[in-house]
Design a protein around this nucleic acid. Structure first.
Length: 640
DNA sequence: GTAAGATCACCGTT
DNA sequence: CAACGGTGATCTTA
């Protein structure tokens, strides 16, 4: 009760609730727009620029090197560390975390000539394949202490690497084909080769019965290859994975893809068909399935009662994206034969989910009508129709209503700073040809896949804008088009209000912009009391900012959008990306939040606020501290 | 609708 | 007996 992180430094939750009750009857965004009540509040703090020091995380020696941003950033850090331009007291501000890890792969046949340069930048680098993957944690401290902690983070990092490499390969292919032909490359196989070369396979040494370290129920995968490389299910095509133990075949995992019309029951019962008998092949005549291989292993597992991992493959979102979701451990209960649709005998197995495991989020969502019958629904749409999709507010914790603020969907710029559009491209197609599109040239290629995923982390992304001749569905217009996923705010147990999605979000997709009023830094200093909603921008383009005598801050306190509700996490699943599209002013990029990994439905959406620890002081020069309740593996317990 | 594809169990040979 | 190579199987993937 008293541990709510939404209440800080001397403010009790009771006091907070009393204040809230005064506004409870006002629907959000209506009336009293000048009144503001913060969900979270921090005292004066000082914000150092993001910088990756020697503690930077690397997955394994030599293979993953850290990119630290530009030289300008380092100079900026030195500048501020010396005391230049700093103040003793500053308001707390979120900022873009510009660290990433770089996965480097040498081209075949080139390795010998450039031996000894692994993981380092060199002239040979331009022959290398590389991609900037969003970092999971800012420093080693947040990697956790136990073996299991490290494994979980390692799994997440390797999945990010795989996904980023896939996006990069897809980008290359799309650029080559210029949108004319269908892609035929197996990017999953290629990405796996790259990761294998980098030593990024885990849990692959031995067969594992039961849970796989670092993989959690609800984790989502796009390719069978991903199941393979984290050790969840090693076969790339076969649905039953098994091994020999004490002279007996036993099943370790199955993939229920629906290829044999397998049925899944909400009660945890799964009827699974055996494999073999040429049921899937059209080239050979179907035969009776034999009690061998996986079929035999599953049958043996009835007696042994060994746990079998179940991975469900389906079009869960109802869309065109098929994913594999880890469903947890099952036991095989029984086995029988019956006649299949082709007239031949097939095996059937009944599996039951082992109790006391976390439920899949799909279950809860399937049992409720998404937009009207959500449990604890208290506001039908906090955007009041301003977003394309309604943004629900649900609270199953207490009676608190969401805070009052004015919902906006466009940045508010001060009257003296009305940004003007930069010169656009002359493309008449969807800017699929990076050699002719001038906007693509600014980016060094179109930074997005045709699936709407950002390929990799960049200091700055240039989307096409109002001056461009390309159509609205241009591949280089992504984040400017707003929220695409059904999102809701919800009351968390310890972190005030948070945000989650009702659909799974693929790695790399745009989620939400951080919108508010644009202020000069010095004006932001003067707005005390609600600094929880400040976001420091333009940090990566610090040279411009310093030259012009100061940076800018987004204040989402009085006017803002959903972006103000995302909580901090030490191991977040989104990251903030600088984007320009409607103007060319590098000092004031848009702050766009992108998914850094596959995010299952109902999982809290978070990013790294990027505060520094022990470097934030109040007016008495005391170090200010704020507890972190993000609950992620390896959380250090402090936001700053 | 089809062909390429990676990996492993299995089996036979060295 | 270990190590290696060939073969067949496989609820993939574009």
């Amino acid at each position: 009760m008293a541990t709510s992180s939404s209440v800080l430094d001397g403010h009790s939750e009771e006091r907070m609730l009393r204040k809230l009750s005064a506004y409870r009857n006002y629907p959000p965004g209506v009336g009293r727009t000048s009144r503001f009540f913060p969900v979270r509040r921090v005292s004066a703090v000082r914000d150092y620029p993001p910088f990756c020091g020697p503690n930077a995380l690397s997955l394994s020696k030599g293979d993953v090197s850290k990119g630290n941003g530009t030289e300008e950033r380092k100079r900026e850090f030195d500048f501020l560390a010396r005391g230049g331009g700093s103040k003793t007291v500053m308001t707390a501000r979120k900022s873009v975390n510009h660290s990433w890890m770089m996965l480097v792969k040498k081209k075949e046949g080139n390795a010998s000539s450039s031996g000894g340069m692994d993981g380092k930048f060199s002239d040979a680098h331009r022959y290398c394949y590389n991609v900037n993957v969003p970092l999971l944690c800012r420093d080693n401290l947040s990697r956790g202490n136990s073996e299991a902690d490290v494994t979980r983070n390692t799994v997440r990092e390797i999945m990010r690497c795989f996904q980023a490499v896939c996006r990069k390969l897809l980008q290359e292919e799309e650029a080559k084909l210029k949108g004319k032909a269908k892609i035929r490359r197996r990017i999953d196989l290629e990405a796996a080769k790259i990761l294998k070369k980098e030593g990024k396979y885990i849990n692959s040494g031995k067969y594992i019965f039961g849970s796989v370290p670092g993989v959690e129920i609800g984790d989502e995968f796009d390719y069978r290859m991903e199941l393979h490389l984290v050790g969840l299910h090693r076969n790339l095509q076969a649905g039953i994975d098994y091994t020999m133990r004490n002279g007996e075949h036993l099943a370790t995992s199955i993939v229920a893809s629906g290829g044999y019309n397998d049925e899944l029951d909400k009660s945890g019962l799964l009827i699974y068909s055996g494999h073999g008998g040429n049921v899937m092949s059209r080239k050979k005549a179907p035969e009776d399935q034999k009690l061998e291989r996986g079929n035999l292993a599953l049958k043996n597992s009835i007696k042994k009662k060994n746990p079998v991992r179940v991975i469900r493959g389906a079009f869960f979102g109802g869309g065109s994206r098929r994913t594999f979701v880890y469903d947890g451990l099952y036991e095989v209960e029984s086995c029988w034969q019956e006649r299949g649709p082709h007239g031949k005998m097939i095996f059937k197995f009944q599996l039951r989910r082992i109790p006391n495991q976390p439920e899949l989020p799909w279950i809860e969502l399937q049992n409720s009508n998404m937009f009207t019958l959500r449990k604890g629904l208290c506001v039908a749409d906090i955007s009041n129709g301003k977003e394309a999709l309604p943004i629900l507010a649900v609270n199953t914790i207490d009676n608190e209503k969401p805070p009052i603020f004015e919902y906006i969907t466009r940045m508010i710029y001060p009257s003296w700073l009305q940004p003007t559009p930069s010169k656009g491209c002359n493309c008449t197609d969807r800017c699929s040809d990076p050699t002719t599109c001038s906007c693509a040239g600014e980016n060094g290629g179109i930074p997005f896949n045709h699936t709407g995923c950002i390929v990799e982390v960049k200091p700055l992304v240039y989307e096409c804008g109002p001056s461009c001749k390309c159509p609205p569905d241009c591949y280089n217009r992504v984040s400017q088009n707003g929220i695409k996923f059904p999102l809701e705010i919800y009351k968390t147990d310890k972190r005030g209000w948070g945000v989650r999605s009702l659909r799974s979000i693929p790695s790399g997709r745009f989620v939400c912009e951080y919108i508010g009023e644009l202020l000069e830094d010095k004006e932001a200093e003067e707005r005390s009391g609600h600094d929880e909603y400040l976001f420091d921008i333009g940090g990566n383009l610090i040279k411009d900012a310093l030259d012009s005598g100061g940076g800018f801050t987004i204040d989402a306190a009085r006017f803002g959008n959903l972006g103000r509700f995302f909580n901090h996490s030490c191991a977040p699943n989104m990251y903030a990306q600088n984007v320009l599209y409607d103007h060319g002013d590098h000092r004031i990029p848009h702050i766009m939040l992108f998914a850094a990994e596959n995010i299952p439905p109902l999982k809290e959406l978070t990013y790294d606020y990027n505060y520094s620890k022990d470097e934030i002081f109040d007016s008495d020069a005391n170090i200010k501290k704020k507890n972190c309740y993000c609950g992620s593996v390896g959380c250090t317990g402090r936001i700053y």
